[in-house]
Design a protein around this nucleic acid. Sequence first.
DNA 1: TTGCTGCCTTAACATACGTTATTGTCCCGT
DNA 2: ACGGGACAATAACGTATGTTAAGGCAGCAA
Lengths: 246, 246
Amino acid sequence: MTSHLIRKLEQFTKLSSKDKHVLDQVSTEGLRQLGAREDIIREGERPQAVNLILSGWACRYKYLEDGRRQIIAFFLPGDLCDNHVFVLREMDHSIGTLTPVTIAQIPRQRIEEVSLHHSRITQALWWESLVNMAIQREWTVSLGQRDASERLAHLLCELFLRLRGVGLTDGDSCELPVKQAELADALGLSTVHVNRTLQELRAAKLIVLKGKMLTIPNLEALQDVAQFSPNYLHLDREGRHLDAND
Amino acid sequence: MTSHLIRKLEQFTKLSSKDKHVLDQVSTEGLRQLGAREDIIREGERPQAVNLILSGWACRYKYLEDGRRQIIAFFLPGDLCDNHVFVLREMDHSIGTLTPVTIAQIPRQRIEEVSLHHSRITQALWWESLVNMAIQREWTVSLGQRDASERLAHLLCELFLRLRGVGLTDGDSCELPVKQAELADALGLSTVHVNRTLQELRAAKLIVLKGKMLTIPNLEALQDVAQFSPNYLHLDREGRHLDAND
DNA sequence: TTGCTGCCTTAACATACGTTATTGTCCCGT
DNA sequence: ACGGGACAATAACGTATGTTAAGGCAGCAA
């Protein structure tokens, strides 16, 4: 079940079987199960461990005093919530589930141990951190410059590619287990306008969305309307990383 | 002249004189001077070094194909542009100056050397990375949920506090050496609307802005209109960090 | 079956913000 | 002292998106 994390990291670098074993190990300890719409950790609390999502979807979010909410990031299976957070004294935002979720809570000490002895994993975790930062930056670009349909299309492309990276797509389809209200909170739009925009993408045959199942019949076309360029996901593995002994 | 970086890091932890010496050292090598509105590094290029801003303002930005531009982050004196970028093969965005700038280019090897031998610096650099990520998240919140005046007020609060953290404020004033067009690109607004919104804040006596000089007569009041909470800057230094030998 | 309840859909209307355009002001070079 | 260029300030008008409200459909409990 770490397989998602391993699969993700192997987009960046080849891991030795020892590396994989360590990762498997880490993700069987400290298991925690949550239902849908529960908080994993809340703003103001002290971060104790790094949370690894084994299954289900979660999100980072923040409320303003008057109740407006922004979803700041989506967490998918294989995602780590904030490597090294424990440097900070308290959380400045909350993390909550969107669906039922299983996580592995990796204690600080365990992380330090691993990064001391497994430089390839350390390197790969750096890569995953940097990609997450790039995703956050791209959200800034979307919210600042893209209009509703571009923004929605962009998000769907991002999620699809991230899911494909951990083996959770099936051809041109994947699950999208979130409500329109949650999409709205992530996109900085109203639910009404998210609905309108979904209809628009449907009418243009760019997406098929029935229940929780999303199909993107022509990914290139969807990328085009979003001005989506996958470079920021840094999925190009280089030759220089292929020398692990397996 | 590293003093800005040192001063910033000391908001998080006390540094030994040895630590400070190392940081001073690092920031006198690889100096580079740039004029206003020049690029430090461009999207697509391979990152070679970590850039430390010694003086002047810069920004991270990204253009869409059709010419829209989003400023993703501001860099102030004492800021490091992307510790560990060199894990990635190419830049997914550009970094450019807003004013004349002096930077120190710190080669990869130097960073690794320092973080190997000076754990307190390593720790402090982690803190600075995490704060930068928090700032990026807060921009997501602003762009997604805050209206024009809240957004502008929030940005001004952020910049003022960051400048204060590196000793670049004078009472309730600081420099704001950016054009309204640049504020617009950062805030996801048009220049016309930025202008309107500045007038609004001026009329409400929340800011005084003459030339490149910003004064915030009542920081609390400005924070209130922005729903600004400084917790995300993580400026609360803890007792546990006070044990360095100086 | 019935009737909730949660979510999606659609419509009519309101508004914050964008666009285009003009004028004003300061600074700098000659 | 003059003219040009860059930037700031305003005005008139257009539009993307928000708000409020109502109806529809599926799933679930009794």
